[in-house]
Design a protein around this nucleic acid. Sequence first.
DNA 1: ATAAATAAAGATAAAAATATCTTTTATTAT
DNA 2: ATAATAAAAGATATTTTTATCTTTATTTAT
Lengths: 145, 145
Amino acid sequence: MGMFSKTCEYALRAVFLIAHRTADGGRVGIKDIAASIDSPEYFLAKILQDLSKREIVQSVKGPNGGFYMDSKNLSRPLADVVEAVDGNSIFTGCALGMPECSSNKPCPLHNNFMNVRNQLQQMLTSVSIGQFNEELNLGITHLKR
Amino acid sequence: MGMFSKTCEYALRAVFLIAHRTADGGRVGIKDIAASIDSPEYFLAKILQDLSKREIVQSVKGPNGGFYMDSKNLSRPLADVVEAVDGNSIFTGCALGMPECSSNKPCPLHNNFMNVRNQLQQMLTSVSIGQFNEELNLGITHLKR
DNA sequence: ATAAATAAAGATAAAAATATCTTTTATTAT
DNA sequence: ATAATAAAAGATATTTTTATCTTTATTTAT
């Protein structure tokens, strides 16, 4: 198990891909996305349905339809995607899973773990979905394999 | 979902509890542990069986039996517990779940995420199972609720 | 030696996450 | 208007994780 759920991993790769592929207009279809990020097509379809409802990506049906993102969505922090899919427990939850852990009634790891969580959150909020297009274009970074 | 699996959360709470309760000799039984950390007894039993095989905790059967830890185990870094239960993918895996992600062929988040993972690993290796006994004694930190 | 206590091991069950398939709805092009 | 296309929605299946129950093996005390 990684830090995020598999659903979230696919979601992140997908938004990067959509951002990259539709930067200058146009749409990209689910089959194309799934192949480009090496994810199971039908499962990804469900994920994107959800991201679409939550207005993190946009879509149109029919011929030449597909998914895309407007500039507002491109500038969203990655944290929005993670939170939409996995919820915010990764940012706020107790490392030991204790429901009432807080600075008042902390678990042994409370303070140590807070630093880690904060750095993760800081990283994910300071980075936008669209900011990696350039290096994806240049083939410096990748979204499959 | 938190950062660790539920199994790992219970495991961490359990080793803290065992360390705390058996610091000056003696053993603590599974029923007692489960009640003390608010975890499902039978499930925790399986987890401790595994930690026992991996020699992270020790156990003896029979009357007055139970779980305990020797001083070598008390000084183990928490990272050993996490790795025993969840594997090391949380320390080494790609944020986007890409199997071949590396500095040679990075995902977009590779470098940003490396910092977070490293801080997590650093934290978990710099902290030992036994080092929280004092504050558990004082009732400053807690292991249930 | 025997009985009682306790963890280990094995088997089964329930819930959640992941994955797939089918039908419906919206859009576009003809 | 009609047919083709593509996502949305609904239904089902599979796998993994989490949880429980039963039986066995080991240890201790009597």
